[in-house]
Design a protein around this nucleic acid. Structure first.
Length: 417
RNA sequence: GGGGGGAUGCCCGAGUGGCUAAAGGGGACGGGCUGUAAACCCGUUGGCUAUGCCUACGUUGGUUCGAAUCCAACUCCCCCCA
């Protein structure tokens, strides 16, 4: 099975991280010889990363665990420009305050996946604002400009697609690829970083960095991209009804995170196990073979493992317990979303519409009304048919709460206080 | 600087004086089938103290019994020419 010389490249290919590489054999050779340094950049466009970035994070983790040194690059500088790659239209410019705030949120998650420190294979974090913010325009143009022809820049997908669709591409955005290339060379010089990795939409940006490195620093750099992940039915990873699947726990509960993985489509289970868990390949092969009802066990393993990494072992166990009592025994688990309401208020009687709205299961009374009309509203597992009904203290069950359900999957608990 | 086009609900997109809370599609939500899957089928999709009321078609005014639809000014965006 060991087709390649290095542990890293072997695992990389076996587990499905590999999409394109500038020179896989040479990289393999290098990785086999000793620790290599690689980086992935993360733009600070939101206060937390979501599942869409998880492939990159897992890749850095794999890289570190196979004996190499990862660099996490925070795009404090490049986010001020805005990456046009893979976007139909320009994003609104973020303020510097937003970017700082986002960066602080994003930083947290890496502690869970990587080991930081001073050692040879310890991860480090850098911020490209440190060198981009103070660039001198003319100097940059003279140093870097001659190595980019506009002719070539126009051929990159990020630019070409915009032009073809006759969507505007500002000069600001047009510069993004140059700055990212500059980043790579900068890291090559300062950290002896030889490899840049990223999602497949980053290919153009990465290749530019590799070329620039060869021209201005006479360094042999490598680039590697991961496949763009969509679910088997074509949806982008990481977005659901209620929004993105955030990695930060203040942005999404442990239970919801676990549930996201539990609800993976059948066709994706194997792929996800390879990318998002660290189970051995033969174990994954076994789980992948399960069919019908049984594949649900594989999904639970996936949810457990993925949640453990991101949220910790306890969080995973608790989320699983809640899910099992809720779905398999029709009961309720403790980590269901809970809303507290004053006991006196409940005793006085609350309309069902208000109740569902307050529990966050309906966005307005009208929404709650539709839910009831559609037959999806349940209180303590009893279907609600009358939208004018009021709920009083007698709805509080033996566990001291009221269980509300909207459809089969969304549940919440009302807790009198 | 000149000329042209545009801004509609979560998104795309029809509508060009009353029948418009606004076609159609996507998405989303609910139901059915199942396995907390996919596919498929059905329904729903502005708010409210609800046979009515309010808010909504870039912003602000105007014409009119009545405007998303007509007029004026403004803002933003795109295209072409200079």
């Amino acid at each position: 099975m060991a087709q390649y010389k290095s542990d890293f490249v072997n695992q990389l290919t076996q587990r499905g991280f590999m999409h394109q590489c500038t020179d896989l054999d040479a990289l393999d050779e290098k990785c086999a010889q000793g620790p290599v340094t690689a980086y992935i950049g993360f733009d600070c466009t939101a206060p937390s990363l979501h599942v869409g970035s998880l492939v990159s994070i897992m890749l850095l983790r794999l890289f570190q665990q196979t004996g190499h040194k990862p660099i996490v690059l925070m795009g404090g500088g490049t986010t001020r420009i805005g990456d046009p790659s893979g976007k139909d239209e320009s994003r609104k410019l973020l303020t510097d305050a937003d970017i700082t705030n986002n960066m602080n949120g994003i930083k947290q998650v890496f502690q869970k996946y990587l080991t930081f420190g001073e050692g040879k294979t310890d991860a480090v974090m850098v911020n490209n604002a440190d060198w981009l913010d103070n660039l001198k325009y003319i100097e940059l143009l003279r140093d870097i400009g001659p190595h980019f022809t506009v002719n070539r820049m126009l051929t990159f997908d990020s630019v070409k697609l915009r032009l073809e669709r006759e969507q505007p591409l500002t000069f600001l955005e047009f510069n993004y690829m140059i700055l990212q290339a500059f980043d790579f060379v900068e890291l090559a010089k300062s950290h002896n970083c030889q490899l840049q990795m990223g999602g497949s939409d980053q290919w153009g940006n990465i290749v530019n960095g590799v070329e620039l490195g060869r021209r201005v620093a006479e360094k042999q750099l490598y680039g590697l991209t991961t496949p763009l992940l969509t679910t088997a039915s074509g949806a982008k990873m990481g977005k659901t009804a209620d929004g993105a699947i955030w990695l930060n726990d203040d942005a999404l509960s442990h239970y919801d995170y676990w549930q996201y993985w539990r609800n993976t489509e059948d066709a994706d289970v194997g792929k996800f196990l390879k990318l998002f868990t660290e189970l051995p390949m033969d174990e994954i092969a076994r789980l992948e073979k399960l069919e019908g009802q049984e594949i649900n066990d594989a999904k639970k393993v996936l949810a457990d493992e993925a949640t453990k990494l991101c949220r910790g072992t306890d969080a995973a166990a608790e989320a699983r317990k809640t899910a099992e009592t809720t779905f398999e025994q029709g009961g309720m688990g403790e980590s269901l979303p809970t809303v507290e309401i004053a006991r006196a208020e409940i005793e006085a009687g609350i309309g069902v519409l208000t109740l569902f709205t307050q529990a966050g299961l309906a966005s307005s009374n009208g929404d709650a009304r539709r839910l009831i009309k559609g037959g999806g509203a349940k209180i303590n597992d009893q279907q609600v048919s009358d939208e004018r009904a009021t709920i009083a203290a007698d709805a509080i069950n033996q566990d001291g709460v009221i269980k509300l359900s909207a459809g089969k999957k969304r549940h919440a608990l009302i807790k009198p206080v």
